[in-house]
C-alpha cells in the first residue's frame, strides 16, 4: 500500500476486522460460558436437620470410647468420657476435614491425617488444627440419644 493514500479501503478493512474480532469473541463466549457454568456443580439441598436420633443406645457407649454417627450429610462423633459423661462434636477436623476418632490410650479426640489433638471439650490442644470441633448438645431420653445443634 502506498503511504499517505488513506482512501476508503483501510477504514473498511478496519471495520471488517473489528466485526470479525467481535464475532469471534462472541462465538468463544457463547461456547465457554455454558461450558463454565456446566462445570460448576448445582447446589444440592442439604439436610439441615437440627437434631438426629441415634440408633446407638446409651449403654452401648462404654466410658473412654467414641463412635462416629451421621449428622445430616456429615460425620459426627459421640464420646463417653472416662468420667461417664456423653458428649458429641462434629467429627470433621478443622484442619483439612479428615474424620477424627477417639483415642482411648490418650483419652481424647485425635485426627489421624495430620496428627491433630482435641481435648474432651473439643478444644484443639496440639498439632495443626486451628479451631475447636463444633460441639453438639446430647440429650438422653430413656434409652434413646438425641443429638442436636447447639442454639
Amino acid at each position: 500500500m502506498v503511504e499517505g493514500t488513506l482512501g476508503p479501503e483501510p477504514t473498511r478493512r478496519h471495520f471488517i476486522s473489528w466485526f470479525l474480532g467481535t464475532s469471534a469473541g462472541a462465538f468463544l463466549l457463547s461456547v465457554f460460558y455454558p461450558v463454565g457454568r456446566y462445570l460448576i456443580p448445582p447446589k444440592v439441598e442439604e439436610s439441615m436437620a437440627g437434631s438426629v436420633k441415634l440408633t446407638i443406645k446409651p449403654q452401648d457407649v462404654k466410658p473412654n470410647s467414641g463412635q462416629i454417627f451421621k449428622f445430616g450429610s456429615r460425620p459426627a462423633i459421640l464420646i463417653r468420657t472416662p468420667g461417664g459423661e456423653l458428649q458429641a462434636f462434629s467429627a470433621v477436623c478443622t484442619h483439612l476435614q479428615c474424620t477424627v476418632q477417639y483415642r482411648p490410650d490418650l483419652s481424647h479426640i485425635w485426627c489421624a491425617c495430620h496428627n491433630g489433638h482435641y481435648d474432651l471439650n473439643g478444644k484443639n490442644i496440639a498439632g495443626p488444627p486451628p479451631r475447636p470441633l463444633d460441639p453438639y448438645v446430647v440429650n438422653v431420653r430413656g434409652d434413646q440419644i438425641v443429638v442436636s445443634k447447639s442454639a
Binding site: I68, P75, A91, C98, T99, Q101, A112, C113
Partner: peptide, 9 residues
C-alpha cells in the same frame, strides 16, 4: 464416608 480416618494414613 462415616468412618474415622485410619491411623497411619
Amino acid at each position: 464416608p462415616f468412618a474415622s480416618a485410619p491411623a497411619g494414613i
